[in-house]
Design a protein around this nucleic acid. Structure first.
Lengths: 131, 131
DNA sequence: TATTGTTATACTCTATAACTATA
DNA sequence: TATAGTTATAGAGTATAACAATA
């Protein structure tokens, strides 16, 4: 578990360095990456994906909305909630994030066998399931 | 990488729940766990282990010292730095943390084969090396 | 001169409780 | 009544730059 935390810390630093010109915090980057990967989520779903409380997300979403990267669109099915959708500009940024993540992953994991990778994914899934 | 972050979030929540009565933050827990695992480190070494800056650690170490869990002992070899050593009380707490971590790991990873576990460790090491 | 660690500062992350609007 | 999300609040995490003490 300590190694897991350490690896996460390191990847966040590396990602932040690779994307320094975007001037995004780790939480902002994480939100954009999750929206790019998961489509138009609402706040609850994003909260579950990122492991943070809705109230924590409010400020992050405010900043991303102010910068024109996403919009809160009232969900016509349930008018208590919003669909969080990336703007054109936000999609461009999110794509850069996705590319940077993929490059980091490829570079870091290049030397591993398919078997080792499968074990890695299985362990992550096991932690998510058990915790 | 998103899954890695998510797994870390989940494990931190689970650990915090298991140790709720200790009233420690994640950073405090992490410091105690690293000192228990690594012996008497100095601030620079702890900074490297935890992935945080020395200035970030100052407040965490202050709180842990105030609570009687660790002491800063002047390093006679290099009087600019401290050896961070757990007190008796701190060792007891750190042992509980270590036990809780081991239990969580055992529970989460119980279903995995030695091969899968090996792949997991290899991937973590690869991320630390590349990032 | 360089390094270790702290202090001062500013901003972000985080959660809880209270609240509004909707279901 | 219950749920989605925000607001208000308070505390903790985070880094940078300036600093003191030591190497």
């Amino acid at each position: 578990m300590l190694a897991l935390q350490r690896a996460t810390h390191h990847t966040l630093h590396a990602l932040s360095t690779a994307l320094a010109d975007l001037r995004l915090t780790a939480a902002e980057t994480n939100v954009l990456a999750n929206l790019a990967a998961g489509g138009a989520l609402n706040v609850s779903q994003l909260s579950a994906e990122t492991g943070t409380k809705p109230s924590t997300l409010t400020n992050v979403l405010d900043r991303l909305e102010d910068r024109g990267y996403l919009s809160r669109e009232l969900d016509v099915q349930d008018r208590r909630s919003f669909r969080l959708t990336l703007t054109k500009q936000g999609t461009v940024i999110a794509d850069r994030i996705g590319t940077a993540i993929t490059e980091l992953e490829n570079r870091a994991l290049a030397g591993l066998s398919p078997n080792q990778l499968a074990g890695f994914h299985a362990a992550l899934a096991a932690f998510e399931k058990a915790c």
